[in-house]
Design a binder for these strands. Sequence first.
DNA 1: GATTTATATAACTTTGCGGTTATGCTTAAT
DNA 2: ATTAAGCATAACCGCAAAGTTATATAAATC
Lengths: 114, 114
Amino acid sequence: MLDAPLALDALGDPSRRQILMLLARGGMSVSGLLEHFDFSQPALSKHLRILREAGLVTFVKDGRAHRYELRGEAIRDAGAWMIELYAFWNDRLDTLGSTLDALAEEDAREDAVQ
Amino acid sequence: MLDAPLALDALGDPSRRQILMLLARGGMSVSGLLEHFDFSQPALSKHLRILREAGLVTFVKDGRAHRYELRGEAIRDAGAWMIELYAFWNDRLDTLGSTLDALAEEDAREDAVQ
DNA sequence: GATTTATATAACTTTGCGGTTATGCTTAAT
DNA sequence: ATTAAGCATAACCGCAAAGTTATATAAATC
């Protein structure tokens, strides 16, 4: 069995998962994100740093704003690991193959348009 | 976007992920699991409690031993949530459909043999 | 150039979590 | 019946993590 992705450590926090759900809709600035939370701006910046170091988000400077963006591949990899674990448990490695094949196919299509 | 599964909180710990990987190979007793770790038996029991309350494992009493088992569906659901998030981010809801369809199909097959 | 806006970092506080030892309960063994 | 084995819980400890306020930097505005 493959090692679990580090990203799962960062995903263990509800606020960070909420951030990722917001970013899945599109890039957002820190102040834009902040409107959706009760805690302070530094607290949000700390979460964003953790997500960055886990490879789950990136940002681009846009004037004085930092536009954060989701790194979907990292999310996908974490999800794939779980599906893989499920498939292994389920004693159906054919499922594993088809699932990962489907993901790889998606990836190829994505790369093509970029 | 759907809420993230609570299970992800429990998955935020490397030791617990290791436990799940061991259990994916088949049910194990606490003492059996303990051989794979450096910490004490109470520490392991606390991890198992958290995994139980997250719905990720169950156990059956077997004499004085407790045989823990993985609840694959919970893992699958957590993985599916991430794949779903990825698909949403990737602006390809057709992918979401096909991925979840594939999982549902797997599930149906599983139910059939049980 | 002074001020305001946007974000990050530093320093600090507090709380939660993962670890420990000690103990209790249940079941098997002798 | 005692003893031992397997596991869970209680009580406690230390530290990391999530929060705070204060401050620094960089860019836009006036």
